[in-house]
Lab assay of single mutants.
Amino acid sequence: TRVETATETAWISLVTALHLVLGLSAVLGLLLLRWQFPAHYRRLRHALW
Rank of each mutant, 00 (worst) to 15 (best):
L48R: 07
H19R: 04
L32N: 03
L31P: 03
H40E: 10
V27M: 14
T9E: 09
R45M: 15
R34T: 08
V27Q: 00
S13Q: 06
A26F: 13
R45P: 04
T1G: 05
V15D: 01
G23S: 06
Q36A: 15
R45E: 00
L32W: 01
Q36M: 15
T1I: 13
R43A: 13
Q36L: 10
V21K: 01
A47V: 11
R45G: 10
V21P: 02
L28P: 03
A26T: 10
L33S: 00
T7F: 11
T16M: 02
R2E: 11
A26H: 03
V21E: 05
W49K: 11
S13K: 02
R43L: 10
G23F: 14
S13M: 13
V27T: 10
V21M: 09
T9N: 08
V3D: 05
L33H: 08
L18G: 03
E8D: 10
V21G: 07
G29H: 04
V15M: 09
S13E: 05
A39D: 09
L24Y: 01
R2W: 11
G29A: 14
R34W: 10
A26K: 07
T9C: 05
R42Y: 13
R2T: 12
S13W: 14
A39N: 11
V27G: 10
G23K: 06
L20V: 12
H46I: 00
F37C: 10
H40V: 08
A10H: 09
V21I: 08
G23N: 04
R45T: 09
W11Y: 13
F37D: 09
W11P: 05
L20G: 06
L24W: 00
L14G: 04
L30A: 13
Y41F: 15
H40F: 11
H19A: 05
L18I: 04
E8V: 00
L32I: 06
A39E: 15
V15H: 02
A39Y: 11
A39R: 14
L48I: 15
H40L: 09
H19Q: 02
L20K: 01
V27P: 01
L22W: 06
V3S: 04
T1V: 13
V3K: 06
T16C: 09
A10Q: 11
R43G: 09
P38D: 15
Y41H: 10
A47R: 14
H40I: 07
E4V: 14
F37G: 02
W35V: 15
T5K: 01
T5L: 02
T7P: 12
L20A: 08
L48N: 07
S25W: 02
S25R: 04
L14R: 01
R45C: 08
A39F: 12
S25E: 04
F37K: 00
E8F: 03
R2V: 11
R45K: 12
V21D: 02
A10R: 06
W11R: 01
L30F: 12
S13T: 14
R2Q: 13
I12E: 04
R45I: 01
H46N: 14
F37N: 10
W11F: 11
L20C: 10
L32P: 06
Q36E: 15
L28G: 03
R43D: 05
L31E: 08
R45A: 10
L33N: 09
W11V: 08
R34H: 07
A26L: 11
S25Y: 01
L22K: 01
W11E: 05
T5H: 01
I12S: 06
L44V: 15
R43N: 09
L20D: 02
P38Y: 11
E4A: 14
V27I: 14
L48M: 15
P38W: 01
T9G: 12
T9P: 14
S25D: 02
F37L: 09
W49F: 00
T5A: 06
G23R: 02
A39M: 14
R43M: 08
A47K: 10
H46L: 08
Y41I: 14
Q36I: 15
H46C: 11
F37P: 00
A47E: 00
H40R: 13
L48P: 00
H46E: 10
T9A: 13
S25H: 05
W11N: 01
Y41G: 11
W49G: 02
V21F: 11
E4S: 13
T9H: 08
A6R: 11
R34K: 15
A6M: 11
R42Q: 14
W49I: 13
L33Q: 06
R45H: 10
V27A: 09
Q36R: 15
A39T: 14
S25Q: 06
W35E: 15
T16F: 04
R42T: 15
H40P: 15
L24M: 09
P38G: 12
L33C: 12
E4C: 08
L31M: 13
W35G: 15
W49T: 00
S13C: 14
L18V: 07
T9I: 14
A17F: 07
R43Q: 08
A47N: 11
E4T: 13
L44T: 06
W35Q: 15
R34S: 08
L31I: 11
A6I: 00
R43E: 08
L20Y: 02
H40N: 07
L48D: 08
L24S: 01
L48G: 01
L18S: 01
A6G: 12
L32G: 03
V15N: 03
H40D: 05
G23E: 06
